[in-house]
Design a binder for these strands. Structure first.
Length: 261
DNA sequence: AAACATCGCAACCGCAACCTA
DNA sequence: ATAGGTTGCGGTTGCGATGTT
């Protein structure tokens, strides 16, 4: 991390008012100014950058705009099935460590992942009338939602065998390559390196299956018979999460509840 | 058509960790 | 050692878009 403070200064609220610092949505002109300045001078030293570039914004605002929106390698839009699976897996492991999770989804920002979790996952918890942190909901995610995602990814791969469909799964935490972009879009021939995580999944020749723990206990095989996904789970990357839920989830939750009661 | 409700996301805020003079 | 500043993180909010009544 390159910290500099030779030309930095923070502003009090009154100073901000005096300088008429802008807040709220960025304009096209502001975006252009920021992109142009960073192209010539690089990023970092955000407070001085904001002033040097002539932007009436806080350094913090500039940094956020750049990292979450303007950066050329930022990926925006539909979260793919593979990304959803990865988010669920990593969140089950690390909780709300959005930045850490984002490191494993190249181009995705912590903000986007956080928003995905809040708008999609928590919404489903609400619909199922259970707490997102409850054991029941976590079990439902692990034994229903995630297996379904895997199956849908498999199906998508089978439907479009010419496309390389790779599920990027996390390596053990101490892996030095954990955050590298190589874990996405990896050619099928080079997949095995992504699947050596014993507590997670196993894969051979582009086939996915849960590890022992999950494959032995997952009830998804029962549920998935006759499930209708409405043909909307190809590679369109649409709101794939919504169709993962059905009356079976309620049934599963009830079983969980009865078991734990 | 209009009023109201809900959703999704960009941006903000407070705080803690970190850096350096 | 520490004070003053920056950066990064997670939680929260505001608002336009969209859906519903």
């Amino acid at each position: 991390m390159d910290h500099h403070q030779d030309d930095t200064k923070s502003y009090s609220q009154s100073e901000e008012d005096l300088l008429e610092l802008r807040r709220g949505p960025w304009t096209v002109d502001e975006d252009f100014t920021l992109i142009n300045y960073i192209a010539h001078h690089g990023e970092g030293r955000w407070n001085s950058l904001a002033r040097s570039a002539g932007l009436k914004r806080t350094g913090k605002s500039c940094r956020l705009r750049w990292l979450n929106y303007l950066r050329p390698d930022v990926r925006r839009g539909n979260i793919t099935l593979e990304e959803q699976l990865l988010i669920l897996e990593l969140h089950s492991r690390w909780g709300n460590r959005w930045s850490k999770i984002a490191q494993h989804l190249p181009g995705r920002t912590d903000n986007e992942i956080k928003n995905y979790w809040r708008t999609r996952v928590q919404k489903h918890a609400k619909q199922l009338k259970c707490d997102v942190n409850s054991k029941q909901f976590k079990d439902t995610m692990r034994y229903l939602w995630m297996p379904r995602l895997v199956e849908r990814i498999q199906a998508a791969a089978a439907a479009a065998p010419n496309l390389d469909v790779a599920v990027a799964l996390p390596r053990p935490e101490n892996s030095s390559a954990a955050a590298s972009s190589e874990s996405f879009g990896t050619p099928a021939s080079d997949l095995t390196d992504c699947y050596n995580n014993q507590d997670c999944y196993a894969a051979n020749n582009n086939q996915f299956s849960y590890g022992d723990q999950l494959s032995l206990s997952s009830p998804s095989g029962y549920f998935n018979q006759g499930l209708d996904f409405g043909g909307q789970w190809a590679m369109d990357g649409g709101d794939a999460s919504d169709s993962l839920w059905s009356v079976d989830d309620v049934w599963f939750l009830q079983q969980q509840f009865n078991t734990n009661a």
